[in-house]
Design a protein around this nucleic acid. Structure first.
Lengths: 247, 247
DNA sequence: AAGTGGTCTAGACCACGAG
DNA sequence: TCGTGGTCTAGACCACTTC
C-alpha cells in the first residue's frame, strides 16, 4: 500500500538518517537501549523488515550493537573501540597506546585555497587550525597540524584546545565520523618537527597526511605531520575485506 | 514449513558457502552471470529473501556484483580492483603501481615451529617458502620472504615460481582470500636487504610483516620483508568503517 | 513466562537495462 | 516488452536473555 517513494530515497535510508540524527543530537547516548524493532516500525509507520534493514546497516557502521534477547544499544563513538579505527599506531602488545596531547596553538581563520579544496569548502568558509604534539608517556610520538571546518566543530577556542582526539571532538559536536584515508611515507624531519620530537633535523621519520569524512560524506579533518615510532611500535594496516562484521 | 535448521548453520550461510564453492572450484569464472534470485531459490529450495541475503553478503565481500536490470556477475578475484585490497603501496597519482616480481628461491619443507604457530598448522605440515624481489620498472621496491601452507597451494615448484602475487596464486589454486593485516614500521636494512634493494646496509627502510587469511578463516600467507618507497610513493591506509559498500 | 533480536517465508510492486 | 535486481510488506517461528 503506502509506497510514497516520491521522496526519492528508499525508506530504510530515510529511517537510518533519522535514527543517526537522534544519536548525533545526543537524544540517544552511548549505552542507551533504543526501542525494539516492532516499536520502531509502529512509530515510523514501516514494516519490521524495513526497520531491520536500517538497523543492520547501523550495526555494520558501528553505530549500534544488537544483542539477541536483550535489545539494541547505541555505541559510544568516543571509546577505545572507535578510536582504534582512526589511529593505526599499535604498541608492541598489539593494543592502541594511551596517547596524551599537548596543544601548541589554535587559530580560527578563513580557509586557504588548499584547505578549501581538500575540505571541500565554499569561498569564505572558516576553519580552525591546531598544532599539537602527541606523547606516549613522556616520549613525543608525533607533531601534527590539523585543519577542520569551523561550521562542523563550532567551539570557542578555549574549549577546542581540550579536544585533541577527533572521535572525542566529533562526539562533543554531534558529528558522526565515517571513512578516512591516511597516506603514510618516510621523510626527513624538518627543523620544527625535529625540535618537537627531540630528534636531529634530517633524521628519517614517518610522515602522514590524513583525511577523515563524516558519515554523510563531508570532509571533517585534514591532518598532517611527522611521527617517530618508539621501538617495537608499528602501524596496523588492514588488508582485504572484513566479512566478519557483515553477519 | 521446512525449517530444518538442524544442520545448525543458518540457511543463508549454507547457501553462500555452496555458492563460494562453485566460484572457488572454477565452475563460475570472473565475469560469468549466475542464475537469478528466483532461479537460485528454486534450485536450492529456499525463499528469495534467503537467497538475497546470501547474495548481498557476497557482494559486500566483493565476490559478486549485482546490477539492477542486468543480473548478478562473478568478480574476477585476480584483477586490479582485488589486488588493490592486498597491496597498500600507491604511486604519486594514487594508483596501484604496476609491479614486476623476480623469484630468488623456492623451497618446500616441513614447517618450522614459528611457521606452524603463525599459519596455524599441525605438526608435520609442509610449507612453501619463497624469496622474491618486487620492482617498479627497473627500480627494486621490496625484498620479501613469503611462507604459505602447501596444502592450500599445492603447485609444483616450477609453476609456483610463476605466481608472485597472492591474488593470482589464490585464483589458480581455488582459494578465496579474506581479511589480512600488515604491520608496518621502520628499521635499518640488513646486509641482504641492502644488496637486493641497492642501498647501504643500515639505511632506514620500511619493513612489514603481513598475514592474509582465506575467506573461511585459515591463514593463507605469512610474508615479511623490507621496502624502499620511491619518491612520492606512499602507503594508503584505510581509516574508520567503509559504509559505502553496505547499501 | 515475557520480551528481545534472528531466521525464513511468500508474496507485491518499482526501477533499470536490453532488445 | 520482458527479465533483472531493489524495495517493502506482513507475517510465522526460533533462539536467547532476563525475571
Amino acid at each position: 500500500m503506502r509506497t510514497r517513494l516520491l521522496a526519492s530515497k528508499p525508506l530504510y535510508i530515510q529511517l537510518r538518517e533519522k535514527l543517526i540524527d537522534r544519536i548525533a543530537s545526543g537524544e540517544w547516548k552511548g549505552g542507551d537501549a533504543i526501542p525494539n524493532e516492532i516499536e520502531l516500525a509502529r512509530i515510523y509507520g514501516l514494516s519490521s523488515g524495513t526497520v531491520r534493514k536500517a538497523l543492520n546497516w547501523m550495526e555494520a557502521a558501528k553505530l549500534l550493537v544488537r544483542q539477541q534477547g536483550r535489545g539494541t544499544f547505541v555505541c559510544d563513538r568516543s571509546d577505545a573501540d572507535t578510536a582504534e579505527l582512526y589511529v593505526r599506531v599499535r604498541a608492541p602488545d598489539g593494543h592502541l597506546p594511551k596517547l596524551r596531547c599537548e596543544c601548541a596553538s589554535v587559530e580560527v581563520a578563513p580557509a586557504h585555497a588548499d584547505e578549501r579544496a581538500i575540505l571541500d569548502l565554499p569561498a569564505g568558509a572558516e576553519v580552525r587550525r591546531i598544532r599539537q604534539t602527541y606523547f606516549i608517556g613522556d616520549t613525543p610520538l608525533s607533531w601534527v597540524r590539523s585543519t577542520v571546518p569551523l561550521d562542523l566543530f563550532p567551539l570557542p577556542i578555549d574549549e577546542a584546545k581540550e579536544y585533541c582526539a577527533l572521535p572525542q571532538l566529533a562526539k562533543r559536536c554531534g558529528v558522526i565520523l565515517g571513512k578516512g584515508e591516511e597516506r603514510l611515507r618516510f621523510a626527513a624531519a624538518d627543523a620544527e618537527a625535529a625540535e618537537r620530537l627531540k630528534c636531529t633535523p634530517g633524521e628519517m621519520l614517518a610522515t602522514y597526511e590524513r583525511r577523515v569524512n563524516t558519515i554523510d560524506g563531508r570532509v571533517a579533518e585534514w591532518k598532517r605531520g611527522f611521527e617517530k615510532l618508539p621501538e617495537g611500535y608499528y602501524y596496523s594496516v588492514p588488508l582485504g575485506v572484513d566479512t566478519q562484521s557483515l553477519d
